[in-house]
Design a protein around this nucleic acid. Structure first.
Length: 272
DNA sequence: AGTGCGACCCGAACGC
DNA sequence: TGCGTTCGGGTCGCAC
């Protein structure tokens, strides 16, 4: 399940592979994942090339000469580079062919990922990009910012950390880890957090996301980024998927509960 | 406006 | 073994 660190890893790997090569064909095997007009999608990409790859939260932003291709991997989306001659594998839904006979293939077992091709000038007005909050590593992400955002949020802090309009890019894994770092109970209402606790969350986001990006992300279940790069951050996880195991701090057993329908892992002794 | 929840998907895990 | 059922997870859209 790719979160910000995985998306950043995919971005870095793909940048080395596909920039400035002319796209000569686009195969759309699962049209439903294209949010923009499907016919225009192919027409507008052919004879263009990706000149840069950016990222906003969990959205990958492929820059072309006159458009942006927005791509969200959701839980299981992956990109692979393969030779044009290789047979189409199961779950490959979109295939971009370059003039050098290499292909970029979007693979997604659950078909949850989405792509959207937009005009360059529309980027800031496109809903999915516009509403993203601050990145975990943004200097503007401060305790005061969080305190203000949490002011009238009665929901559990765990749920609020997943709200992309506040912090952009945190998913379930890192939300669990950040709350353990900050020693905050995931069920605590966001509006009850003190400024000190908000400061801990900011610190936790920075530490954890920075380290996760350095380590190439977290490989959980089926997720590996493109080209066989395997995230190693899972070795650093302290609570996520650790139910029944001993807390690294106090030795009591990690609990698993549901908050807002999402699996939440925490130490009820350390996270009061 | 804030909140809660089903829908979208399909492979894995589970139950019998 | 084999079948049917349940679960999960990011985001959207609808209902309250």
């Amino acid at each position: 399940m790719p979160e910000i660190a995985e998306v950043e890893t995919v971005r870095n790997v793909l940048k080395k592979q596909i920039l400035n090569k002319k796209i000569v064909d686009v195969d759309i095997l699962y049209p439903k994942m294209i949010e923009s007009n499907v016919k225009d999608f192919k027409k507008d990409l052919i004879n263009k090339s990706f000149i840069d790859i950016k990222r906003k939260g969990k959205w990958l932003i492929f820059e072309l000469e006159d458009r942006y291709l927005l791509s969200h991997l959701r839980m299981e989306g992956k990109y692979f580079i393969k030779d044009k001659k290789e047979a189409i594998a199961k779950h490959e839904h979109i295939i971009f062919t370059f003039e050098d006979e290499q292909t970029l293939r979007y693979h997604d077992t659950r078909k949850f990922g989405r792509m959207n091709l937009i005009k360059k000038e529309d980027l800031e007005n496109t809903q999915c990009i516009k509403k993203q909050g601050l990145e975990p590593l943004d200097d503007q992400l401060t305790a005061s910012y969080l305190l203000a955002k949490f002011k009238n949020k009665k929901l559990p802090i765990k749920t609020v950390l997943l709200d992309q309009t506040i912090i952009s890019g945190l998913g379930n894994i890192y939300a669990n880890e950040v709350l353990f770092y900050a020693q905050i109970n995931p069920l605590k209402k966001a509006l009850e957090l003190t400024k000190e606790e908000c400061a801990k969350i900011v610190e936790g986001c920075r530490q954890i996301i920075k380290q996760a990006i350095e380590m190439g992300g977290t490989t959980i279940k089926s997720y590996t980024s493109s080209l066989g790069v395997t995230g190693r951050f899972q070795q650093k996880l302290k609570v996520h998927k650790k139910e029944g195991q001993k807390c690294v701090k106090c030795g009591s057993l990690i609990k698993k509960i549901k908050i807002g329908g999402r699996s939440t892992y925490y130490c009820e002794v350390c996270q009061k």
